[in-house]
Simulated scan of single mutants.
Amino acid sequence: MSGKNHTTWAHHLPANFQSNHDYAKIFQILRILRFNNRETCSSRKQNDKFAAIHDLWTFGAFVIVDQQLVAFRGNCPFRQYCGLKFCILCDNETSYVWNIQPYTGKQPNQPSEENRGLRVVLELSYGLKGHNITFDNAFKSYELGQMLLKITVTMIGTVRKNKPSIPTELLNTKNKEVFSSTFAFTNNTMLVSYVPVVVQSTFHFNKNFPNSVSKKPQAILDYNQTKGAVDTYDKMVSCYTSKRKTKRWPVVVFSNFVDISAVNGYILFTKVNPNWKQNSLAKRRLFLENLGISLVQIHI
């Protein structure tokens, strides 16, 4: 949990926990924490930027693919702006993390990858069947929609306007009223230009306007309702996290891995026990306290 909760957390520890001595042990463990074999590290780094933690890393009807940026300012060969980027597949209803991939950019001694977004979505969604995936224009393409249909997975997503698959009639919005809609169809795909965005869907097949006031097509409403799971997960992690200030990026990745496991554990536990702490406003904090004590109790 975050540093401000150390005092509360310590009050729940067993009486034989010697705080100063045992905290020193914890900091010593954090200082020497490593996830890599030094003997083979140099050779594996030549072809894999993620080699320092790669060995450890391998691991609803509506889901979402989106990007997560984990804050980090140290030296890392694939740092993006002020952090490490991950692509996440989440359940829309609960924000349960189904799958995750790090973004490492161009690998050493390898050519630049084309259609990276297509590969990432297909790998993240491996094993899904009968689901719908929502994502933004960083991943969306007509080819991806067709490949997902082959594994009985539909999609909804915004499309960049420079895509050649978009008819010019949908791109010409100069004289169109704001929030007006123009549609285009193939036998299995629908495009709607809802000024000022373009959305592609293999989940919708008609011009449905359930809300006569906003005049939003059903595809736009469904996209808005199913795009926020990763943002919700980010908010959950920002409240209680195992991350500590460090200049070693594998430790940041490991902390993110712990945070994901804790969030997933909380989601599963509350689904199985819906009446647990039902009236409490601090359910997740209490769950994390109990989880931490359960994990360390047998080692004390």
Rank of each mutant, 00 (worst) to 15 (best):
P274T: 07
K163V: 04
I100M: 15
I298F: 05
V97N: 03
H11I: 10
T270Y: 04
T189F: 06
V253E: 05
D231T: 05
P196Q: 08
I260F: 00
Q200T: 06
K235P: 04
S2K: 12
P167Y: 00
E169W: 00
R244E: 03
L118Y: 13
L118A: 02
S238M: 00
L84Q: 01
Q68W: 09
K85P: 07
V258S: 09
N99S: 12
V272P: 01
F62W: 02
T189D: 02
L128Y: 07
K174Y: 02
I298T: 14
S180D: 12
V199N: 09
F59A: 13
W9Q: 00
V120M: 05
K215N: 15
L291D: 07
N5R: 14
P196S: 12
P14I: 06
S255D: 15
S2A: 11
R31N: 12
K216P: 05
L221N: 08
G83F: 02
V70Q: 03
S43Y: 13
G127A: 05
N36M: 12
C41E: 15
I88C: 00
S255W: 03
T246F: 02
G157S: 03
Y96K: 02
Q218Y: 07
R244P: 07
C90M: 03
C239Q: 13
T246Y: 01
K161N: 14
H299D: 13
